[in-house]
Design a protein around this nucleic acid. Structure first.
Lengths: 201, 201
DNA sequence: TTCGTTCTGGACCGACCGGTCAACATTGTG
DNA sequence: CACAATGTTGACCGGTCGGTCCAGAACGAA
């Protein structure tokens, strides 16, 4: 018994994600968001609250789908855990190594811009990093069981190291350092993990 | 034959650095800069140009002193090259591991916020990263000569890996992940370099 | 002292900011 | 059809944005 909404909330959130992702929180105006989503100010405020609340929704969604994708990649069928870890870094290297400006990762941009002043953003970032570290650790342990990673490696420590390298590659890619730099960093990181690159690949 | 300036340019740049460092480029208004520096708009524009130009000056200065400090630390007298590299990571871990919000590194924040849309910022960031990688590589090679790092390690690759870990630690610290996470990442990174932590320390 | 030159402070500008609100449109219900 | 309830739209708000400009202040030179 009321007028139904004319828009799809998830579609709007995706559009808003694009807008924030392109310019960051402060540099994205409400007009930008209106243009990106096609909604008027009133609808935007009625459905999501103010700019800050909308951004938090966007960031939460991004982190959720981001970790879900990582989980899918690592839990996926097919090759061994060791191969999937190698693939993960390979994918990052080729994706981030392409010349030209990169949009980087929304979480990295948001944390850099807002974590110092916005505890909710910092919490979401920390929680996401912890989750990723856990996924990496589980995969390393599986690789240890399979005999692809030496059993004497500390899986948690190795996972944390891999996480740091992944985030570092993101940071370096923003400056367009080139694929060879990222490749070296990734190779060295996999080496610590006992995941020396397969020479046949 | 003219009225002399009433302010010290370097002091003003230091104050402006603080302002930009606290809030980022977009979220720092001219009023903030006026309050931080004590200068009026006219003086600010007369001496440095617009907000963008002032920011570039600030960022350039930050990168210059930042790499200079690193150079001093690595070229300094005293302990061995291996010890200085270990010290570098130790310092980072303890500094970034303290709880509470971190201001992170101005270069990291600026690159995340602006590199995608501002080529000058991206160039400065890339150049700074290349410089740091070079400093690390030189120090690793010195450690190899001294016999503290196995001679068969690729110094350039190792340096790039250490750089990625350093930037990754910065990124993780923004989310307040905790000192133990950073310590694990740093320890694993030093291990690849052949710089196993001195058990006596 | 007088003058030319530079610096300084702040009034002022149009544009845009995030946010509110009231008039109106669109639905289900009776 | 009338009505209640919700969604939509865009005009409107006070404030702030980055930037300009100018009247006057503070100097050195003559």
């Amino acid at each position: 018994m009321a007028r139904p909404r004319k828009f799809d909330e998830e579609q709007v959130l995706r559009s808003a994600t694009e807008a924030f992702w392109n310019a960051g929180f402060a540099a994205t105006s409400l007009d930008d968001l209106m243009q990106a989503t096609g909604l008027g100010k009133g609808s935007l405020y009625g459905a999501f609250g103010d700019k800050q609340a909308l951004f938090q929704r966007v960031l939460d969604g991004y982190c959720a789908t981001s970790t879900a994708h990582l989980r899918d990649h690592l839990d996926g069928p097919g090759s061994s855990s060791a191969d999937r870890l190698r693939d993960l870094f390979d994918t990052m290297v080729t994706a981030l190594g392409q010349p030209g400006p990169h949009r980087s990762c929304l979480l990295a941009k948001s944390a850099a811009e807002l974590a110092a002043t916005n505890p909710e953003v910092a919490d979401r970032a920390r929680q996401t990093f912890v989750t990723i570290a856990g996924l990496l650790q589980a995969e390393i342990e599986k690789a240890q069981v399979a005999g692809d990673v030496p059993a004497d490696r500390d899986a948690r420590r190795t996972a944390r190291h891999l996480l740091a390298v992944l985030r570092g590659m993101e940071a370096l890619a923003q400056a367009d350092v080139g694929e060879d730099v990222l490749r070296d960093a990734a190779d060295a990181a996999l080496e610590v993990a006992g995941l020396r690159r397969d020479p046949a690949t």
